[in-house]
Amino acid sequence: MLAVVAAIIFGLGFLLDLVGVRIPGGISGMTFVLLGLALLALHQAGIGTASVRSGSGNWRGRTRR
């Protein structure tokens, strides 16, 4: 989920940087890029990922024997 949000933030940052718009308060395209990188780092760390617990508790789910 955080990776999708990061992709949207990167897209907004790219558009703002391409047009050269600067939002009042010091927010520019680079701010969105840095926010997107922070969200990607959180995603890679495993924060915000949905996990579905199976009955066995194994990350692979059911194993065939």
Rank of each mutant, 00 (worst) to 15 (best):
L2K: 09
G46N: 05
G20F: 09
M30W: 14
S28Y: 07
G36S: 06
L35S: 02
I47D: 04
N58F: 15
L2Y: 15
G57D: 09
A6L: 01
W59C: 01
A41C: 14
T63G: 14
T49G: 12
I47A: 05
T31A: 12
T49F: 13
G46C: 07
L42Q: 06
G48F: 09
V21L: 11
S56D: 11
R60C: 09
G26M: 07
S56W: 09
Q44C: 09
G20H: 03
T31L: 00
M30S: 13
A45F: 14
G61E: 04
V4N: 05
G36D: 00
I8T: 14
L16M: 14
L39V: 00
V33A: 13
L35G: 03
L12S: 03
V5Y: 11
A41V: 10
G48W: 06
G25E: 02
G20T: 01
I23C: 06
S28I: 07
G29M: 00
R53W: 08
R22N: 05
A3K: 03
A3M: 10
G55E: 12
L15D: 06
G13E: 06
A7E: 14
L18R: 12
L34F: 12
S56F: 09
G20K: 01
V5D: 08
V4L: 12
L42R: 07
A45K: 10
F32N: 02
L42I: 09
